[in-house]
Simulated scan of single mutants.
Amino acid sequence: MSADFAARLRRREPVVGYWCALDAPVATERIARLGYDYVCLDGQHGYLGYSGILHALMAIGSAAGAVGIVRVEANDITPIGRALDAGAAGVIVPLIETPADAAKAVASVRYPPLGRRSFAANRSGLRPTEANEMNVVIAMIETPSALSEVDAICATPGLDGVYVGPSDLSLAVGGAYPMDPAVSVEFDAAVTRIREAARKAGIAAGIHTPNGETAARRLAEGYTFASIASDLNHLEQAARGHLKDARAETY
């Protein structure tokens, strides 16, 4: 499955994923069975420690559907290597601001001679050459510096894709708060710029979205992959909706 996912992403074929922030392997397993191409575990802002990431990746694997990827906590070889050793098919690396940052992320994912990842027993059982081919590395574009350097970042050798974090990107273009409508024009221009920089470099462009309708729109615009977020948000939305329905006749 991870080989197919990597190949599809590198061919820039549309793929759809789901975002998990909760340490709830049984729920993650259910989601992985639904038909998503990938499930991303949020190791940066989510509520999963390393054991949570490991158990969630095992749950995704047991579902025999989606592949599991991880947004790691930082552009550091240790959390990147541990996520891949736990069985992740790839990583999304936050706060990439320069081509040097992107090259560092790539080197942390690839075994020598392509990078500096160290070998250890891992869940995937992949040999280094296989892992180099099957593990993807994706850089987040979410800061003013990243936006100004996006063309050079996308041209980084070995980088498989870039990923838009809309909340931080809206702040990066001058928003007073995440998704501030006052900067909607600037935000849309940044989203287009990132997508086109990836297209010109021949790599995948991904984006975080709140729902399937938005994901479909972004894919139609030319984004390669879109994540639908997230288990925590959707749990809250469903619970709120049921509570509203239950009280509709009494309030």
Rank of each mutant, 00 (worst) to 15 (best):
G61Q: 10
P166K: 00
A32K: 00
A131I: 08
R193Q: 13
V137F: 01
R199Y: 06
K200R: 15
L9I: 12
L54I: 10
G161S: 04
P210Y: 12
P79K: 01
D188P: 00
E130Y: 04
I60S: 06
G241L: 14
L34A: 07
R199W: 05
V67I: 10
A56D: 14
T250D: 11
G222V: 09
R247H: 11
F225L: 11
I92M: 13
D37M: 07
A238C: 08
A102M: 10
Y36V: 05
P113D: 12
E221K: 11
A239M: 15
G68C: 08
L243H: 06
G222E: 12
R11S: 12
V93N: 03
R117V: 08
T250N: 11
G165M: 06
A120L: 09
R240E: 14
F119K: 05
L243A: 12
I207T: 00
A89K: 01
A100N: 07
E196Q: 14
G206M: 07
A152K: 07
R110A: 11
A107E: 09
R8D: 05
L114R: 12
A32H: 01
I153E: 01
G87M: 06
G87N: 04
V72Y: 05
A86L: 04
R11V: 03
M140Y: 04
H45Q: 11
E249H: 13
G65D: 10
Y177S: 14
N75T: 12
A238Q: 02
A198C: 08
E236I: 15
S230W: 03
P166I: 00
